[in-house]
């Protein structure tokens, strides 16, 4: 599969751009966190497309963003649980 480039994204409408980035990010994230891949991908897609492209090109920055997202999700789930139990 050829790498996703800025020009490929620029040729697509905004909604399609997020879809293209998501389809590339999801498998990479799923290999690390299968159970949370959908939510982590959804979180990362809210980041600017140019930064997402950089992350697709650099596994280290992608991994650190994924770990950040996992930490945020876990805090979010804890606060959700505490809301429910109140």
């Amino acid at each position: 599969q050829e790498p996703l480039t800025a020009s490929m994204l620029a040729a697509a409408p905004p909604q399609e751009q997020k879809q293209m980035l998501g389809e590339r990010l999801y498998p990479l994230i799923h290999s690390l966190h299968p159970s949370m891949a959908g939510k982590i991908t959804g979180m990362l897609l809210e980041i600017d497309n140019s930064e997402l492209l950089l992350m697709l090109e650099s596994p280290e920055s992608l991994h650190s963003k994924i770990e950040e997202a996992v930490a945020v999700l876990q805090v979010h789930q804890i606060s959700e649980a505490s809301h429910k139990s109140n």
């Binding site: 905004p14 909604q15 879809q19 998501g22 990010l25 959908g38 991908t41 979010h76 959700e80 809301h83």
Partner: peptide
């Protein structure tokens, strides 16, 4: 409000249109 945070983050599923798009200001 609690309701919006329950659906956050908008989950991505391969092959399905991602629902998070409209929330992002262009």
């Amino acid at each position: 409000n609690g309701s919006s945070s329950v659906n956050w983050p908008p989950e991505f599923r391969p092959g399905e249109p991602w629902k998070g798009y409209p929330n992002i200001d262009p």
